[in-house]
Every structure is written in C-alpha cells, then in structure tokens.
Design a protein around this nucleic acid. Structure first.
Lengths: 235, 235
DNA sequence: GATGTTTATTTGTACTACAAATGTAATTAT
DNA sequence: ATAATTACATTTGTAGTACAAATAAACATC
C-alpha cells in the first residue's frame, strides 16, 4: 500500500522491514546497553506505519534481548543474549533431521577442539574436582547420561569460556536424541569406550595437549564410527 | 489483569506467555512442517487475550522460521532456521566484549576439531580444489582476509557438515574484529604462521588426522598465543 | 524541608475496521 | 453436462482508537 521510505516491497511484510530498519538503526548509531530509544508512537510516525507493526517488530527485538521496556521510562537498549533465539528451536522435535545430525557432529568437533584451552587454563582446584567426579564413576559398570554430563560439563567449565559451555549444554539434548536413534537403527558398533574418563583425566593432569587430543578421539571413537557409518548428508 | 489459564503472573508479559504456550503447543503436539495452525482469532479467544498479543507472539515465531503464514490458507508450521535468531545479534557492535572474546576462541576450538571429519570425508575433487586455492596463494607475501576465508571456508565445506559451515561463517566477522582489536592493543606476538596453508594441505593429502590436528594447532598458534596472553575473562 | 498528592508520559492490552489475497461455491455460457 | 467466469467467504496484514497500569516528575501541604 504505502511504501514510503521503507525500501523495496519484495515479499517482506511491514513488520519484517521495520524490524530490519530498527536493528540497523541501533547498530549504525552505536547504541549501547542503557541508551533509551524513541517511543513507539514516534517510531510509527517516523516510519509511516501503525503502532501495531512497530510493536510486532519490537516484540521480536525484545525476544532477542536487544531491547527492554519499562513503563514510563520507555525502551532501552539491552545486552542481547547470544542464544536467546537458538535455544527456542534447539529441540529434536522441531529441528530437521539433517540439522540434528549436523549438531551431533558439531558436538564431537567441539569436544575435539578444547585441548589447548584446557591445558592453558587448568588449575589444581579444577583437577581436584574433576578427579572427584572420575572417582565417583570408577565403580560403575556403565555411565548414565548424567554421569557423562557431569564429566564433560566440568571440562567445558575448565575451558574458561562460558559461551562455549552454554553452547555445548544446548547441544546435548539433540546429541543424546540422535545417538539413541542411531542405537535403535543398529548402526552402533557396540564397543566399550577404549579411552575412559579416568584415562582422559590422567592425560589432562600429566600429559600434553597433543596427547589429550588423541585421547579424546579415542574416547569419542564410538560416536565417530557411528556417525561416519551413516555417510554424508545430502544437503 | 486477567490471568485465566495462562499460569503465574511473574514478570512475563502476556506476549511472553503466549509465545511460550504456542511453542509448547507446537512441540508437544508433534506439529510437523506443513501442518496448519488454528487461526489468530481462535487462538486469541482460546487463550483469552487480544489478537494483538497473539500476533506479537506469532511475529516472534515467524522470525525464528517456526511458522509461515499465507493469506487465506492461514498459518502453517515451517522448518525453523537454526541460526535465524543468532545471526541477528552476531555483530561486534552489539555483542558484549566477553561474548566476542568467547566467540573468538570458539572459532579456534572449531578449527581444531574438524580433523576427523576432513579425513573421513575428503574426496579427490575436494583436494584438487583446495590445492588450486593453495597454489593461488603461494606467491603472496601476506594473506588477505578473503584469502583466509577462501582456504578455511573450503575446509568447512569439506567437513560435509553444512550447519558447521554456516556457523563458522557467522563467527568470522566477530573473530576478525576481535583479532584486529588485539593487534591494536599490541598483544599479538608478531610471528609469521609457523604452519602455512600449503603445509596444512600437504598433511591433509598425505598425512593422518592426528598429524593434521597438530599441524592445525601450529597454523593457529599466533591466535592461541594472542588470546591466551589475555587471560581468562571474569564471567 | 520533608512528605504526601496530582499529573503527565509511555508501555501493555483490547477492540474495531477494512484491504488484500485466494480457495470455494455458485452461476452462466457453450 | 461441462467449462469458464463470477461472486463469496475466510484469514492474514495493517491502521486506528481507547484505556489501564506504572511511575517519574512536578506540585501542594504541613
């Protein structure tokens, strides 16, 4: 209907365009957390759209954590949560099968890549805590999902990279689901882990980063063979 | 004002709650791409809120790619785009400094972790194409940002994991920005890469995955020393 | 000067209205 | 009777109005 200064029509809705305009506006003008935005009616008038459209766009930005609003004080720029969007779709029931398989592998890639940071940042306190976890698991004949999370979660923590840790944690439910699916399909070669948590701990304590990389590959071997048996997806 | 069956008030807005309800509804009822949703007025009546609130919540789901709407046909479930949300905040100008530093390291972690998949999935055609890239860069005394992207981008592609590839590509602008910042602060130890692209290619062609992991560490060494000099962030 | 009260502003929610798109049904022509 | 056309009904997209809630600031009172 009205195009005004909103750019080409294409197939974007007004809300889509206003969302883009607002994001660019915030980025190009160097808005920082705490800075206050113009109020809704002002934005609507400036862009020549209804307040409805503006609010739908703002609702999206609010979901991403880009803005916050308090009554009377108006809206302010906020520190966006990097994973606010992705965590809402990170579920086996809604992701495509290809996505799930890719995320399964992504977790393996991440686990294989943390060696340098572990060795650069490990502390005696970390090692003690990890040893406690390992000892607790020593008697068990098979490790539960929680045991796995506890050990590997401690490793994520030891990387000193909280974003990495959160991302890994997000990945885990999908990883778990895909692996169960593989098991049901009988793809899994039912080998016990050639490298145990205790072995990994030992290398982390006394070995080198390069040795740890190799040990981690051994530990994840069953997962690698499982996913690599399945071939490359046809994306 | 009205709480109805929407759960506790807390500090969530109506829109927040309706968004959660709708996502849970879609997930719990096993909605698959193509399945049609109830129309907006019906949802509004059922939840006892205005169509406005429903539309603000739906607007969010539409942004995530969870739903699509066509006039007359109503709304249908869609295949959500895993990165739709994250790519809108993946920018140096709006991410926190801690997030940026973490993402810088995350890229290093990912690069370090791809060896197994490269060796499991590399093809002769891939190697030829990678060799062409390497040869093109052989004469240059210093590699541009585009050169780096071309070589490493080809590696991402060779992993056969498109989700990984997209994620890496998203990360690159932040990585680049953080590294430039390090350079300005004089943190960088200005060593030439001890392991070149040509070296990496050679190991990928003739060596083993374990050798490649070590070579990649050598190649990324300047970045590792840079970020590790900077200490652990205090998140 | 401290404290209570009013007022103005801005977001949050609700409601109505209508245009655009389009599948379905009805109607007309051959 | 079948095909083409027309009219209708449904649903999203956008606009506009209205008002409640919250609260910061201005004002009034003691």
């Amino acid at each position: 209907m009205k195009a005004s200064a909103l750019g080409p029509m294409e197939s974007l809705s007004m809300t889509d365009r206003v969302e883009n305009i607002l994001r660019e506006y915030l980025m190009d003008n160097g808005f920082k957390p705490g800075d206050s935005l113009p109020n809704e009616t002002e934005i609507a008038q400036k862009l020549n759209v209804s307040r409805n459209v503006v609010r739908e766009a703002l609702s999206r930005l609010r979901m991403l954590g880009l803005i916050e609003s308090r009554t009377r004080r108006g809206m302010i720029m906020a520190q966006p949560d990097l994973f606010a969007g992705i965590e809402k779709v990170m579920s086996p029931s809604i992701l495509s099968h290809d996505n799930q398989k890719d995320l399964f592998e992504l977790r393996l890639i991440l686990e294989m890549g943390i060696a340098e940071f572990l060795f650069a940042r490990k502390t005696d306190k970390d090692l003690e805590e990890l040893e406690a976890i390992v000892n607790k698991q020593k008697g068990l004949k098979s490790l539960s999902r929680e045991d796995e999370i506890e050990f590997h979660g401690k490793l994520y923590e030891m990387t000193g990279n909280d974003t990495f840790r959160r991302f890994q944690t997000l990945l885990f439910p999908v990883f778990d689901h895909v692996f169960k699916e593989y098991l049901e399909k009988g793809i899994h070669t039912d080998l016990p882990n050639p490298v145990s948590h205790a072995d990994l701990f030992d290398v982390l304590k006394n070995g080198t980063a390069a040795q740890f990389r190799n040990a981690m590959y051994g530990h994840l071997m069953p997962y690698f063979t499982t996913t690599l048996q399945n071939g490359v997806q046809t994306s």
